[in-house]
Design a protein around this nucleic acid. Structure first.
Lengths: 269, 269
DNA sequence: CAGGTTAGTTTATGCCGTAAGGAGATGCAA
DNA sequence: TTGCATCTCCTTACGGCATAAACTAACCTG
């Protein structure tokens, strides 16, 4: 399911995201009570580790707490809710993306680098894809990332509306591609069935249940015979079939995106 | 979280999807025991209704059963698990998409119609976006839908690899756009906060927490001032701000996709 | 050393998918 | 007509989830 950004106390959320804890000017008075055994950063890091390893479905307050030797409830001292924790995790994770791209090779090379980086990032942290973009988290790193692609697109000389369109097109494309790759990996891992085995168990069943497949779906049949995923014979047993296909398709699709942008540039001049 | 296609008994799944219950040839012998009070279709329809109304998060066996006046466990007589039910719901829902598009106006017009139809479809049934594409469900309607876009792309004369790239680019784009629109609606509904109110509560906090925003993120600041979402003054209080913006951006992004395909065609000749 | 503050715990509530087992209905063979 | 196999549907139970509420214990300040 899709998760939405903090609907709790907006001020506290923003303060956490931007680390504006404001320990007052100089005062810094000693707080009574036991010293904090954890920090927000500890919890965020543990959360990211859990989510990377077990996926969004495996991200529970219990699991995060356990990784830190605490109960689930202990986390609520530092973080108002699981939602806010997820926002913090999201923004923190974005920090590993480059803030700038080399523009020496022109916008096309830079966008290619951006897209490849972005796909790998999302494959590394597939749970990030489940954080809704509709109401952004508004954390610092989210803005850094947005700024970085805007800087590349600035080179194209396109107007604001086209830039907005390009950002969303590229971002949807990259996220979709990463989703497929990540899902393929997760499916193989959680079911214990390789892509090969999965297809070999289903393909004959498809024939059985729809013997006239090639007549009903001529275009699909044509595509499958003309351009099978395995280019030269069957892929080795342990090749991640789906991921391979997805990566090939990504390359072609990316060219489409860039050519579309080139066309928009051509139209302006 | 993302959901994967039936990892249970593949044969039974396929039989359910293709409605190949095979009541034997002519025999049709009366089964003992009480007559079934439900059908798989009843359950699938109820499931779709629940998911449309409450989203993937609200889709529970208990909720589906309740809609049919049964307990959750009653469903397991007809459907092996929630996963298989979701597969059936997915394929059934796809049936409402057109199987063919008018090619009289050329591939560009047809793809535009396809994309607009697809976005509305996904906005109507946002839970569909959570069904993983990595291991397809392999239901009949999934193939119908794929065949329909392949038929359009056939008109372009592109080769298989380019067609695959175009399908994935268009599909990622359409799904991403729909996701944003659907999420915006869900966020407004579940939080009870309009896009306007959301932004007005956060915008000042952003200034507070990052007073040097315009210096740190000049490109973002420029984009916001050059091309604010509200084109002529503030939008009326109840306008779905985010959705409006998403739809504008969708139109621009779609042009990019189509121009990219046009460029691929030009390259071939 | 008393009192207030804080970190962290335990416990409880109401959700979830679904395993296990039982109750009652039904059709067929004897 | 009886008895049984088979089927639908139910109740109960288990271990998971987020988090509210109330508690314990650590700690600083007066």
């Amino acid at each position: 399911m899709v998760v939405f950004a903090g609907q709790g106390d907006a001020r506290r959320s923003m303060a956490l995201l931007w680390r504006a804890d404001a320990p007052a000017d100089g005062a810094e008075k000693q707080a009574p009570g036991p010293k904090p055994g954890l920090s927000v950063d500890d919890i965020v890091s543990a959360g990211i580790e859990v989510a990377d390893a077990e996926g969004m479905a495996g991200l529970s307050m219990r699991a995060v707490g356990e990784r830190l030797g605490r109960t689930a409830m202990a986390l609520y001292t530092y973080v108002p809710s699981k939602n806010e924790l997820l926002d913090l995790m999201f923004d923190q994770t974005l920090a590993e993306l480059p803030a700038e791209y080399d523009l020496g090779g022109g916008w096309r090379a830079a966008l290619t680098a951006w897209a490849e980086e972005a796909v790998e990032f999302n494959v590394r942290h597939p749970w990030v894809l489940q954080v809704s973009e509709a109401r952004p988290v508004l954390g610092p790193n989210e803005f850094v990332v947005l700024e970085s692609i805007l800087r590349i697109l600035h080179e194209t000389g396109l107007g604001s509306a086209e830039v907005r369109g390009a950002v969303s097109a590229l971002s949807h494309f990259v996220r979709g591609a990463a989703q497929v790759i990540a899902d393929a990996r997760t499916a193989a891992k959680t079911t214990g069935v390789s892509d090969n085995d999965w297809w070999f168990s289903r393909s004959p069943l498809l024939d059985e249940v729809s013997p006239d497949f090639a007549d009903r779906f001529p275009m699909i049949a044509k595509l499958e015979t003309e351009n099978p995923v395995e280019e030269n014979g069957l892929p080795p047993e342990d090749t991640p079939y789906m991921e391979l296909a997805a990566r090939k398709t990504f390359a072609v699709g990316l060219t489409l995106q860039l050519d579309g942008i080139a066309a928009a540039i051509a139209k302006r001049t």
